[in-house]
Design a protein around this nucleic acid. Structure first.
Lengths: 304, 304
DNA sequence: GCCACGGATGAAACTTACTTTCATGAAGCG
DNA sequence: CGCTTCATGAAAGTAAGTTTCATCCGTGGC
């Protein structure tokens, strides 16, 4: 007699659990006991050893193996792994309260973390989605060919501006950032055709930044605005407008998510510029990394 | 001060993969080979037997076991199951090319944007997942009660440090940031019991930051480290260790994703501290917002 | 330059887990 | 009542995982 394959479960696409409970009636009593344990708590079953599970089902290891074969698995380890995977896939969506955006008054730290991370991640993703590659391309082009790049920003956006400046500088582009309006104005006045001025302002209403950008534009420089609000005043003095998509909530007045979104945009521009001349950029990055090497300890691997 | 038992992320609730890549530098060469295989394709690793995996990593079973222990598992079966679970949870990213992290040479801007945004968002989410609320709580507590807070950071992490300083300052906490090591050292020397020093370093090997943190600790201040690598040198001089979970790729040497992850952590701490006294904080934020009002044009609020 | 030391490593011994085989006994059926 | 079939677990057998230990290699002291 040929080894009669009972149920040929070549594939059980949906869920293994569903599959098992489906053929539960067709199993022998002892196997059913095993099956019930597995279905009841897959994750727990995955944790058990075959002997353990057999004992729990009041049967022998042999029966557990038979059960594995019955549901189409090669052996117990396979079943275990599949169960672990199944159990993990059943992810319960993050706490509903988290989605809203603002942090509830009585929130504990775990909630705060979840909320912030959720909003931050969303801001980054949504910003990327709505970024216009064509506009970015032109900005990258302009920056790549610029004689000089000025980056303006105040407050929280100032950090982003400063970061951008440092990045550009690191790949050999001549870039400046000014924490002070007067200096910035002076610099803007010295810009000319072929130069680029980037103004960063979340609200798009920071008069200092707008003013400086306006000055730069008047001198013939290409002006770029990075803001969250596509119709804000800063866009009126910009040749190119890049927008972030952060839904800043009232409480989080530190402009938290917007900052991350801005940084993402900055990174995109940076990599775009860097990619224009991969070889030279790579060299520059290596050289600069080397420069700070002596300020690092334990160059190799770290403490065991 | 005696080497106090440092509290670090003894749990790795979020991503095991993330956890492993964080520990990667602290592993021995042979273990690193194993780790790389595991991180590269968790699902595949889960399918393999220990002998198989050992062979693939060109090492012995013993080393694989050592690796399991190094990352906090009891043994190989446990690792297998966890890996299977992890792999299952993973959402397939939109574009296969995006996954690796590095940007392909011929990439156009749209691809670059997608890649960066994906990695950035990922870093933020994974960081939040593995952050230990208990440790955060203690750090928040310390900062909330601190007489004074010093924040240290160099290079890219310097921006984050500076951002944190500004945030704390804004809600009325006395906080400092020093772009210069000498000044920072001077400041650290003046710290005492009840003060807090926060050191930020992606690699955890920046000697300047470590040195300053050590100084601060010697003076009795509570020291906090924010790094991507839970076993890096900086953690040895920290009472509390907070880790980010950025998988920085070679090309993106500007430490891009890590910066966002750091900012997320900073935001969490900030909100945590702010939440300790909602009323006072709110007032402070309102007042400071008002202060810059005259530097904004177009009075009305903008909404996205 | 030599030696002691400590960590990294794999071979082999060992243990545990998994799988197969086989004897038993219960139920179905002539 | 005896034969067959099948479920079942005990036990043997095999494979997987774990521990032990000797060796090797790099490091730092003398």
């Amino acid at each position: 007699m040929a080894k009669s394959p009972k149920i040929s479960a070549s594939h059980e696409p949906g869920g293994l659990i569903v599959h098992i409970s489906g053929l539960l009636p067709s199993l022998s009593p002892a196997e059913q006991r095993v099956a019930r344990l597995v279905v009841a708590d897959p994750a727990d079953a995955a944790r058990r050893t075959i002997t353990d599970l057999a004992t729990a089902a009041e049967t022998s290891e042999a029966t557990v193996i038979r059960f594995c074969r019955s549901v189409g698995m090669d052996g117990y380890p396979q079943l275990r792994i599949r169960l672990a995977a199944e159990a993990a896939r059943r992810v319960e969506p993050p706490d509903a309260r988290v989605v809203g955006g603002d942090i509830p008054p009585g929130a504990d730290l775990a909630q705060i973390i979840a909320t912030i991370a959720f909003n931050d991640a969303r801001a980054v993703e949504e910003t990327a989605e709505q970024l216009d590659p064509a506009v970015c391309e032109q900005v990258v082009e302009a920056i790549g060919n610029a004689g000089r790049i000025d980056v303006y920003g105040a407050g929280a956006s100032g950090f982003v501006a400063s970061d951008f400046q440092q990045k550009l500088h690191r790949i050999g582009r001549t870039a400046f950032y000014f924490p002070d309006v007067h200096t910035a104005l002076t610099s803007a006045a010295l810009l000319g055709r072929g130069d680029v001025a980037v103004g960063i302002s979340h609200t798009g209403t920071t008069s200092d930044v707008i003013e400086v950008l306006e000055q730069a534009r008047g001198r013939g420089a290409v002006t770029v605005a990075l803001t969250n609000f596509p119709r804000s005043p800063i866009t009126e003095v910009a040749d190119f407008v890049l927008t972030t998509a952060a839904r800043e909530t009232t409480y989080r007045s530190g402009a938290m998510a917007s900052r991350l979104a801005q940084l993402t945009v900055v990174d995109c521009l940076f990599v775009g510029v860097a990619a224009r001349n991969r070889a030279r950029t790579k060299k520059a990055l290596e050289v600069t990394a080397e420069a700070v090497q002596s300020h690092r300890v334990g160059s190799g691997r770290r403490r065991a």
